[in-house]
Amino acid sequence: MNWKHFLLPALLSVITLPSAAYAELRIFACEPEWAALAREVGGDKVNAFSATHVGQDPHYIRARPSLVSQIRRADLLFCSGAGLEAGWLPILMQRGAKSGIQPGKLGHLIAVNHVAVLEIPAVLDRRLGDIHAEGNPHVHMDPRNILILARELTNRLTMLDEENAAHYRKRLENFETSWSRALKGWEVRAKKLSGMAVIVHHKSWVYLVSWLGLQQMATLEPKPGMPPTPSHLTALLKVSRGQSVKAIMRTPYDPANGSEWLATKTDIPAIVLPYTVARDAGPGALAQMFERTLSLLETARAKR
């Protein structure tokens, strides 16, 4: 056996090819909302990539080759956490990610670690569906959490990229001012929505429900992660008859059939809330998302 035959490939695989110099900090966001927030704070000093788009359910993503090559070069990871990405992120992290974005590092930013988490289960059993041991991960639907994470992200960015620290701080300041102003307006509108009864497709809306003081009467999924079944929908028909439910809410990626069926049977409007922003959304998109969410809810409430 000729040693030279395998020395060549072995050598080839060890040599680090000179990577092209990138002026900007590369951010790998698991969801579009975090990529948008990164662009708010980072401006032109960051290159934010979102692993998922608005039509994708972040629970179920394939660890595709393109995601490996993106995470391979990322300087900061920004994800929701609490098991939302458990089906695909660990394998990407193990395969390609740099040391600087591994758990415990400055470049590893997980949203649920920085805000108050709701729905931490007392019992863990897969019979109860696809439940998240660390609580509900959809934290970005409470605009107050967005502010907390903007600050934490700025902390990380100023430490990772000291040269542009002033730039990040300045942008955060502007964002904080405009966001706080918008938040005041939203909270006034929220008072009118308080107590509104809703049915949701998946438990994606807990934070919105809790922020606005809505009443979540039921979920279309019999158990988290399990598609709506005819028998469960029939049972919901009874639930919604007795109550004055104003809306059936779903995300753009939830399948429509369950909520549309219930809507035609009950005359309760089925509404698709934005839930997140476009994959390449620029500044202002997050605020627009909340604006649109509120106005959709207001319209639904006025209808019945």
């Binding site: 040599i15 090819l17 080759p65 393109s66 490996v68 391979r72």
Partner: peptide
Amino acid sequence: YILPTDTF
């Protein structure tokens, strides 16, 4: 070895 390229 995974190359630092856009294409995997």
